[in-house]
């Protein structure tokens, strides 16, 4: 009861904050907040894969596909933003389906290694196919986002577009996670051989989770392209993929809001070091601290604090069994 009210209050604060953020500070801050929204899209869309127990470190590849595809469609063919966004997502999903199909039989580290190779392959293509992507000169002159033919020129309006997009993506992902489909994903993550023995086509459900994640990563990439209007292959490196994974771990994998909290928290915290070598160090430390002290992620922090508060008599700490 009490916690429900607490959650409602927190939600309300988040919504009000999200709605008024562009009014604080200038363009610089709006840009940071947009970055937060994009990172939440990426982190949340990795979750289905993680639910199935797959260590997916390939997400930035599919963000890149969505970004380049939509940017080129909008720039060269003049496709409206909505369409280029959907095409970007669809192409990512299609490539994800093709690349995912043969690799989903692999497990654990082997799967992770293959997904890392996706990142390198896609980045190399973006780098070497100069006639299409401009390679290392970077792709510039990408049209601004538009809605129903109306170009969104101000950074604030583009922020609201990202917010709307994020809300839609989160609603879809939430709905799926708490459906039978989500339950099946979780069952596969907990014991895939048992799921199989009960009649689940494990490969299909894993592929669906993976492809769905690719679609939304592509959508996030498409929005990214239209907002920053410049694409540069190294931006979509392996490190970005690792960061997306770290958002999920640091935020917490036990609940839908984990990646949202993780992405928001880390993006804001790391902002002063962005692009420098410290960024990587920072992420490593965040990951290490989480594994050591908060294995359930930030979302378990309130519960732990409440536990410390009420149970200061020194009851044994809850030992959460390793999954």
């Amino acid at each position: 009861m009490k916690s429900k009210i607490g959650i409602a209050v927190v939600l309300l604060v988040v919504v009000v904050l999200a709605l008024f953020l562009p009014n604080f500070g200038g363009r610089y801050y709006t840009q940071i907040f947009v970055q937060v929204l994009i990172n939440i899209m990426l982190a949340a869309s990795l979750r289905p894969s993680l639910l199935c127990g797959q260590l997916n470190i390939g997400h930035s590849a599919f963000m890149a596909i969505g970004a380049y595809a939509s940017a080129l469609l909008a720039k060269n063919l003049g496709l409206p933003f909505e369409l280029s966004l959907l095409f970007g997502g669809a192409l990512s999903a299609a490539v994800g389906l093709i690349m995912g199909y043969p690799s989903l039989r692999l497990r654990g580290v082997y799967f992770a290694m293959v997904t890392v190779s996706f990142v390198e392959v896609i980045r190399l293509i973006a780098q070497l196919w100069v006639s299409l992507t401009r390679g290392m000169s970077g792709l510039s002159g990408i049209p601004k986002p538009s809605l129903l033919g109306m170009v969104l020129t101000t950074k604030a309006s583009q922020y609201y577009l990202a917010l709307g997009l994020l809300v839609i993506i989160l609603l879809i992902l939430y709905r799926l996670e708490y459906s039978r489909l989500g339950l099946i994903w979780k069952s596969i993550g907990m014991a895939d051989n048992l799921s199989q023995s009960l009649g689940i086509n494990v490969a299909n459900y894993k592929l669906l989770a993976f492809t769905l994640g690719c679609f939304f990563a592509g959508v996030a990439g498409a929005y990214y392209a239209s907002f920053f209007r410049f694409l540069f292959p190294p931006e979509f490196s392996f490190l970005l993929s690792v960061n997306i994974l770290v958002y999920n771990f640091v935020g917490g994998r036990g609940h839908f809001i984990g990646p949202i909290v993780g992405a928001a928290f880390l993006t804001l915290l790391v902002e002063p070091f962005r692009g420098s070598a410290y960024e990587t160090i920072f992420f490593s430390i965040a990951m290490l601290l989480t594994i050591l002290f908060l294995p359930g992620g930030l979302i378990t922090l309130p519960g732990k604090l409440a536990g410390l508060w009420s149970g200061s008599t020194g009851s044994a700490p809850a030992t959460s069994a390793a999954t």
Binding site: M190, A191, N193, L194, S197, A321, T323
Partner: peptide, 9 residues
């Protein structure tokens, strides 16, 4: 399964 295999959580 021989080893106890359940959806533990």
């Amino acid at each position: 399964f021989q080893l106890t295999t359940l959806f533990l959580d």
